[in-house]
Design a protein around this nucleic acid. Structure first.
Lengths: 284, 284
DNA sequence: ACTTTTATGAAGTATTTATTTCATTATATG
DNA sequence: CATATAATGAAATAAATACTTCATAAAAGT
């Protein structure tokens, strides 16, 4: 993908880089359109390191000096631009795409656009409020939808500590018996809707819980079972459905909840931070 | 006509220009991608005029000096590029995003576009081939990445029956011991990379397995551990990362594999269909 | 905990790049 | 064709930028 070797070098030498050098590499990679124009001292200021360190970085990558590194960055930029233009042209042609990636990612871009246009923002905002107000939250998502369900479970439970997903393996009933009036049940279901999802949601409504449905179509059998409905497009040219758009909606829900409850959430995240440190979970 | 006022100026002043000045203007207009990088003396040589004339040209256009003219040329170049790339940044009319959904889905559209532009299609195609050729496939994905990992497991195992995901809870070692030379290990890891992911991948490489990395950045600590790397943008304006783009890449991988192996896969799906019927899994 | 090694930025120096000067050449005008 | 005017590039000077040095701080090793 990189036509010029500069970025390859950065990637290859990554492991032997010092902290500051990594910062510089990072900045160069993330600002490929502007960074090649900067002088050494300006780059140093942008990155937050000394000018000398920038110069050393150029030598570190085996260039003759900063101007040499700069020249290579500039060349990469020039070539990148034309290849980007070529790509735009190939995708713009009436649907006939040469390779699978371009086709699928293109479809997903379309799905997100469609979802965004069709989305009922009132329902979305209500959904956020219900999530915040809920006593406990249960997520129903079977088969392939389980992945998106567990993603939502992971983050909602991280920030609210009152969320769990009801999994296929579970002796369903025991969890379901807990569902109460001021609980919220979030159901995911996409084409080839599983019977079990429908059944569980019916039961949840019977028990008086609020229901939020995330599905792929207004004609979905889940729609009548939801007090709130969020529709996300999932169509791609494949035997599977794409969950990019529903996942993006989950991102938006989680983000909206955390923004509304940011005081609580920040404390919670800070506490977790200490925990993670203790158990040495993350790199760097 | 031109995006930046620099070129307008040249055109407007064209008539009052001297011979040499016209030559310079001409060169700048015809080399908009390379000329902005040149120093005054180099530009002078390219055009075939004296260095002083180039400087005078900058003053002639009412710039403060050559660096000032150069800066404007560079800005024009950048703007051209981004406007070609961005196309569809869906924001509100006034630019400020009114609600979270629009903001997050807009970010994700951008992520998919970026991913598409930066993707190494050669690596993608190799990845598809490795998946097809692999004896067994192991997926490594911890914490939030687990959701996308299990999605991939679900479909790859459905069509190939040789895929499993190594889960956090598992007494890791027992599965890892099985990893052999012609196996493929697919590792997912995104910002706040977990140590365990890195360790497991190192181990997999040691055992001689092929490795495919799906991560968010070329500076990710996972990159050096992958024989093949696929990079997907995950940045949204939130404390979480978005997996829409990586998920879309997984969609593309699964789709490409099934298209390449469609004879086998169709039979398999047909068999499953019978199974599902028997157990009455789906609605309608 | 201590030593050694390595990395760092401030300050100084060298180099490159931009600008000005000035003698020369080209162009225009009567 | 002579003269005035404007434009030009080589060389000198000024400014900006790149690179080096060195004392100090952070990591790594023991």
């Amino acid at each position: 993908m990189f036509e010029n070797e500069v970025y390859e070098r950065m990637i290859n030498y990554q492991e032997t880089m010092s902290k500051s050098h990594k910062k510089i590499a990072n900045y160069l990679i993330e600002n490929r359109e502007t960074a090649p124009f900067l002088t050494a001292s300006k780059l140093a200021k942008h990155v937050g390191v000394g000018e000398a360190t920038v110069i050393r970085f150029a030598f570190f990558l085996n260039y003759k000096g900063y101007p040499d590194l700069q020249r290579h960055l500039q060349e990469a930029m020039q070539r990148k631009m034309t290849s980007a233009e070529v790509l735009v042209k190939t995708t713009d042609k009436d649907g006939s795409t040469s390779d699978v990636v371009t086709e699928i990612l293109g479809d997903d871009i379309q799905n997100l656009k469609t979802t965004l246009n069709q989305l009922n923002t009132a329902h979305f905002e209500q959904a956020v409020q219900e999530i915040i107000d809920a006593n406990r939250i249960y997520i129903i998502a079977y088969r392939s939808a389980a992945s998106i369900g567990s993603f939502m479970e992971f983050y909602l439970d991280m920030v609210l500590q009152n969320t769990e997903m009801i999994r296929q393996g579970d002796g369903v009933s025991e969890h379901l018996l807990d569902i109460k009036e001021n609980d919220l049940v979030i159901g995911f279901g996409f084409a080839r809707y599983t019977k079990r999802t429908v059944e569980v949601l019916k039961y949840a409504k019977q028990r008086g819980a609020k229901t939020l449905i995330i599905t792929d179509h207004y004609m979905s059998p889940l729609v009548p079972l939801g007090d709130l409905k969020l529709i996300a497009a999932t169509e791609i040219n494949s035997f599977i459905d794409s969950f990019s758009a529903p996942l993006s909606i989950v991102n938006a829900l989680v983000t909206a909840v955390t923004r509304a409850e940011h005081v609580k959430v920040e404390k919670r995240l800070h506490d977790l931070e200490g925990l993670w440190d203790n158990f040495d979970v993350f790199e760097e």
